[in-house]
Amino acid sequence: MDLKNLDLTDRRGIVTGAGQGIGRALALEFGRRGGHLLLVGRKLDTLTETASLVANAGGTTEILVEDLTQPGAVDRVTEAVAAWSTVDLLVNNAGNVRAGRLELTTDADVHSMIDLNLTAPILLTKALLPALRQSGTERGSIVLNIASGIALVGMPFYSVYAATKGGLAQFGEALRRELIGTGVHVATVYPGATDTAMMSSQNAGADLGWARRSLEDVITDLIAALQSGEHEINTAPESRRAMQQLNLTDPLAVDDALAPNLEALELAVRDHRSI
């Protein structure tokens, strides 16, 4: 089995947060390759739109309207695919964000981010791992975790979000090492600011270090990297990659670079909310 050149065709699996943005785009990519997907999300109308797009692209779908933070949600996902002969794909994409000063963030928003961005993908992966392992012995299974560039550079006014995405990244790294030799390919994606609905309430631009890439470009890079067997997939723009590298070698220099624009950045992101 060659996990350095992953075959993305005819995958059977789950995409969370499939109603919009990166989740919808990934569902379309796997649909174009003949995939059969369980689309999971909170809104029937957006999931139905995704299902129609996937069908037009050549794939097939089932829909599960589910809030993954609710009791029993993970069990209901696993039950939905229990009769499938193969489960060889899990895309942990569902997530939410609330930006702003930590002391102004409500406890409810803290729990909401942790529950959806971190706890849900861990529990869902845990529940589906037996099926992914079994399918992995054939041609390899895929666990694809959608983290964030903020997992590589913790940005001010995103402290809780950064904690969840950094946690998801480390979860993926540790699990990848745990599953060596099992045929389960664990990959983590680090998107920078991407032009999706999730970013519609965020007003920081390139002048504040938030240059955005199109969803199409991000997905193109992501799929190419996944096909080539990469485990750490960085789709951030080049400008942000320079900051990521500096953060590795001289993190206090990043502090110094951000400090002069803190007030402007807070004003630009304080309404950023997808919860």
Rank of each mutant, 00 (worst) to 15 (best):
T164C: 04
R101G: 08
P71S: 04
L152W: 11
N117M: 01
K43I: 09
I146R: 07
M155T: 11
Y161K: 09
A268C: 06
T125W: 00
G209L: 06
L44W: 06
I22V: 10
A187H: 03
A83V: 15
L252G: 13
L152C: 07
G229Y: 03
A197E: 14
L118D: 02
A120M: 09
V91D: 04
G17D: 05
R33T: 00
G154M: 10
S135M: 12
H272P: 05
G166K: 10
D115H: 04
E178I: 10
G166M: 09
T48E: 15
A151C: 07
L6A: 11
A108L: 04
S135T: 06
T125S: 15
D10L: 09
N93V: 06
A163Q: 12
T69P: 02
D67V: 00
L8N: 03
I180C: 04
A242L: 13
I233L: 10
D221M: 10
S135F: 01
G31S: 02
A51Y: 03
V218I: 10
A169N: 08
V77A: 10
G35M: 03
R12Y: 11
L258Q: 07
G31D: 02
V254W: 00
V143Y: 02
A99H: 04
G23P: 04
G100C: 01
I275K: 08
A242K: 15
R240N: 15
H111D: 13
A204G: 03
V143H: 05
G21M: 08
I275M: 10
Q244Y: 15
V153I: 13
A82N: 14
T46Q: 07
L175E: 01
G58V: 01
L215M: 02
N93H: 04
L252Y: 11
A236F: 02
T125G: 12
A162S: 14
R270V: 10
S52C: 09
T137F: 09
E263R: 12
T194C: 05
D67C: 03
E238W: 15
N247I: 12
A197M: 11
E216T: 13
R33H: 06
H36T: 12
P251G: 12
V153F: 05
T235I: 03
A264L: 07
M155K: 13
R240W: 13
M199A: 14
D115N: 13
A73H: 06
R240E: 15
M1R: 14
V87Y: 04
E66C: 14
D10Q: 15
G100V: 00
N203F: 07
T182L: 04
L248T: 15
A163W: 00
T106W: 00
A169G: 09
R98K: 15
T61Q: 07
S200I: 08
G140M: 03
T86F: 05
L118A: 01
G72F: 00
L39G: 00
I146N: 06
E216K: 11
V254P: 03
V81T: 14
N117Q: 05
R240A: 15
L152P: 07
D221L: 11
D195Q: 14
L248Y: 13
I223Q: 12
E216I: 06
E79K: 15
E138W: 02
N93E: 05
V160E: 03
S214P: 04
V77H: 12
T61L: 06
A211N: 14
L252A: 14
T48F: 13
A236D: 12
R240F: 14
V186C: 08
H231G: 10
L123I: 05
G167D: 07
A131R: 15
R98I: 06
G183W: 01
